[in-house]
């Protein structure tokens, strides 16, 4: 029971990170029908940006307060990553809009290769150990297998929850969200009705990157190490989460992320950590075969 509770906490923490990345995939897919392969690497880049800003704050500027540093790092990483994704969309995807379906996909794969190698070249190929932060633990139960909840985990779940709510508000209640949904339905019609489609798409990338940056900051904090190759696997897992939840569906992405996080953690705890990726991917394959639209996606009626 203790073990179960502990794994549940760990799984939800990991799942929060996947969920945040998955939103970026699902939004971009929803609006331009493209699998943004570079998104995992944007997430990795954001973790590096967060790390550098954190080091600059503490070492160059001598900031001592951890919570303040964390807040600044979070906001700065979001802004900087958003700018990166904006530029990527502008340079690598916008010229291909309305072109062959595979052209933006290949462009995104190229961008993904570029980003990870760019970070490798400018920051070096070695693992970057992050100075420990928020190391306190809360013991929930006592005993040989005590269940602990670390401050980090609380922080991750709290930040995820707050930002998801804010994001939910933006998408549901604001003009931007309405424009976004309109573009998802019919881009041409939206343009005819005076919606600036290019701007809406750009903003989608910006929001997706900002959420990925939150995930990146939390990831750096949680695992305490980042590497230039860290984008691929979480990226694929998050995309898996988006598809599992029903691609195009925002709550689906979050639920999918939490599910993938839980499956992976429980599999590693109860069976073997070697095959945790196989478990996550198998769940995806099985879901798609029996429920192609994912958990919350709209069933696709074949138009004849």
């Amino acid at each position: 029971m203790e073990n179960f509770l502990q794994q549940l906490i760990n799984g939800l923490t990991l799942g929060s990170i996947y969920g945040l990345i998955a939103i970026g995939y699902t939004m971009v897919f929803g609006i331009i029908g493209m699998v943004n392969f570079a998104h995992g690497d944007v997430f990795m880049l954001s973790a590096f940006i967060a790390l550098i800003i954190f080091l600059a704050l503490t070492q160059l500027l001598g900031l001592a307060s951890m919570p303040v540093a964390f807040l600044i790092v979070l906001v700065a990483a979001m802004a900087c990553t958003a700018l990166w994704n904006w530029a990527i969309e502008r340079v690598a995807y916008r010229p291909l809009r309305g072109s062959f379906r595979l052209a933006p996909l290949i462009s995104a794969i190229g961008m993904s290769i570029f980003l990870s190698n760019f970070v490798q070249v400018v920051q070096g190929p070695r693992n970057k150990p992050v100075p420990p932060m928020f190391t306190d633990l809360i013991r929930l139960t006592d005993g040989p297998l005590s269940v602990t909840l670390s401050y980090k985990q609380i922080l991750i779940m709290a930040v995820t929850a707050v930002l998801l709510l804010a994001f939910w508000f933006v998408v549901q209640k604001t003009a931007l969200g309405r424009a976004q949904r309109a573009c998802e339905q019919d881009r041409k019609m939206a343009a005819l009705l005076g919606i600036d489609v290019d701007r809406t798409i750009s903003l989608t990338f910006v929001i997706g990157a900002a959420l990925a940056a939150v995930a990146g900051t939390l990831y750096m904090l949680y695992y305490g190490v980042v590497n230039f190759s860290d984008g691929f696997t979480p990226g694929v897992k998050a995309f898996t989460a988006a598809v599992l939840g029903g691609i195009g569906s925002l709550p689906g992405a979050v639920i999918g992320g939490l599910l993938i996080g839980l499956i992976e953690t429980f599999w590693a705890a109860y069976f073997s950590s070697d095959y945790k990726d196989v478990a996550a991917f198998s769940v995806l394959a099985i879901t798609l075969i029996f429920m192609p639209q994912g958990l919350l996606g709209k069933p696709e009626v074949e138009k004849v």
Binding site: A92, P104, G110, I113
Partner: peptide, 11 residues
């Protein structure tokens, strides 16, 4: 790095 960039440029 150039390989990735070349993929983008060629597309």
């Amino acid at each position: 790095l150039i390989f990735g960039l070349a993929m983008v440029v060629m597309m």
